[in-house]
Amino acid sequence: MRTGEYKLNLIREKTFLSHAVVKMVIDAPNVARKRKAGQFIVLMTDEKGERIPLTIVDSDKENGTITIIFQIVGKTTTCLSEMKEGESLYSVLGPLGQPTDIEQFGTVVCIGGGVGIGVVYPITKALKEAGNRVISIIGARTKDILILEDEMAQISDELLIATDDGSYGFHGFVSDVLQKLIDMGEKIDRVVAIGPVPMMRVVCDVTKQYNVKTIVSLNPIMVDATGMCGACRVSVGGCTKFACVDGPEFDGHEVDFDLLTSRLRMYYTQEKEAMENFRCECHD
């Protein structure tokens, strides 16, 4: 929340987890107080900035802080990554979205790909605390950009790692590791898979064959993120849903991933333009 009188949204800590993934701890006591696993915030870096949604990775009620992890992909995330500790974000709104459905399901496999590991981390933690047996599978393109390995190891009964190029752990995709688990006779009650759209889709293709309920967290483009605009509409089980208020988590077997992929590319040209202009400004 922002008022004219006092300064909030202060960046307490900034850490690069890899060259393109940043972790930030931000003062946001009202968000920290209410936040549950699976929820997100919308932030703006400055007055002319875009509103972007980011998952709340962790929160500290006592200190009134929240943690976010983001990948540098476009202008807004670049600007954000260049902000310094002690500076304040223009706007932080949250917690938004439905919290994750946390119950004791039995054995749960939590899968995170790329920066999605940051998103699956709080859910994994909550599922573990709820008494589930948690097997985590995390993956990245290559070893250097794999994040949160230690943190995930701490909250998982078993942690499996995959890299696309074989530089670390299993050589292949997280879905291949999941398939191996199933082939080895592991009885899985639920899967949570969060990462790039192709990853979530492939995981769902695997679990569909064995009828294992699979939860995915969707990241469509949002504007207000309070149910007002419908920018984030996704198709789930043939019905249109707003990811910001109905989600962001849905039954992966019901999600229309083609539509999601297509809608994520809506502003591809403008995003490129904004980034190019921004690079020019930087070099002036």
Binding site: M1, R2, T3, N30, V31, V92, L93, P95, L96
Partner: peptide, 13 residues
């Protein structure tokens, strides 16, 4: 009047 922005009532409070 005090104005507090970024405060979706129902969510934040």
């Amino acid at each position: 009047v005090t104005v507090v922005t970024d405060a979706v009532i129902g969510r934040v409070k």
